[in-house]
């Protein structure tokens, strides 16, 4: 028996919106400590990792670890049938080939349930080494979304350079070029708008804007985002969800000229 109750459907809806355009099918690994998901896009250029801790749920019970293979598009269609403030209970009996979605309105006067067929997904998990990053930047997630969207008007890739002057995002395209520079915030008036830059070493790498735009679909999950860069490692873009867990993305760099 597996059972997990989300206090609000909205959180699960936001998570799905942030993942479903990168990954079609994924295994939700449910263990005593919580739910995790790790999946790459078809091109193996990006990877999503999700952690939802058991203690972040209203109710969480796993008798035996379960791997729920789910088509995210189907799950997203079902989740659209939930009101944002409905509670969502996912449950699966041992040996069952479906997972049940139970939606309950806040005053318990409406209940609906959907059963989704589970899939056998042959997924390969990757060993992600604990990297020492050359630079770490924390900024408002809306700011990152804006930069990525603005620069996408001029080209396909962004060069991110971290130096003493700050962090610079540069795009070059057939019509011209553009850049945005962010500097470490000095005032602490509005900590939620602050930009923090920790540079251990200057670093510069290029990334496909197409993927960064998809990652920024997670901006509604978290007011702040962390991006971490190393010379010889994929970019890490991390959205923390308070005490519940996180949604992280890794992106392989573009190399050469």
């Amino acid at each position: 028996m597996f059972e997990a109750r989300f206090p609000e459907a909205l959180l699960l809806k936001k998570i799905l919106e942030s993942v479903k355009d990168l990954v079609q099918d994924a295994n939700f690994e449910c263990t005593e400590s919580g739910i995790t998901l790790q999946a790459m896009d078809n091109a193996h250029v990006s990877l999503v990792t999700l952690l939802l801790r058991g203690e972040g749920f209203d109710l969480y019970r796993v008798d035996k670890p379960e791997s729920l293979g789910i088509n995210l598009n189907s799950m997203s269609k079902i989740m659209r049938c939930a009101a944002n403030n409905d509670t969502v209970t996912l449950d699966k009996l041992e040996g069952a080939d479906t997972v049940r979605f139970l939606f309950e309105s806040p005053n318990a006067d409406r209940m609906s349930e959907f059963h989704l067929k589970l899939m056998d997904i042959d997924s390969e998990t990757l060993e992600i080494p604990e990297s020492m990053y050359h630079a770490e930047i924390e900024l408002p997630s809306a700011e990152l979304r804006r930069i990525v969207s603005d620069l996408s008007t001029m080209g396909d890739s962004v060069r991110i350079s971290v130096s003493k002057e700050g962090v610079r995002f540069t795009v070059r395209g057939d019509e011209g070029s553009g850049s945005v520079i962010l500097r470490q915030s000095t005032g602490v008036d509005k900590p939620e708008e602050a930009i923090h830059i920790v540079m251990n070493e200057p670093v510069e790498q290029s990334f496909a804007l197409k993927y960064l735009n998809l990652f920024c679909k997670a901006a509604p999950l978290s007011a702040r985002v962390q991006i971490k860069l190393s010379k010889d490692a994929p970019l890490l873009v991390n959205f923390s969800m308070n005490n519940i867990g996180y949604l992280s993305y890794y992106l392989a760099p573009k190399i050469g000229d």
Binding site: V45, T125, A208, A233, A252, K254, D257
Partner: peptide, 14 residues
């Protein structure tokens, strides 16, 4: 031109 790398070149398979 730039070449897109893949993650499998950086992360080991489990």
């Amino acid at each position: 031109a730039q070449k897109q790398t893949t993650l499998t070149g950086y992360f080991g398979r489990n």
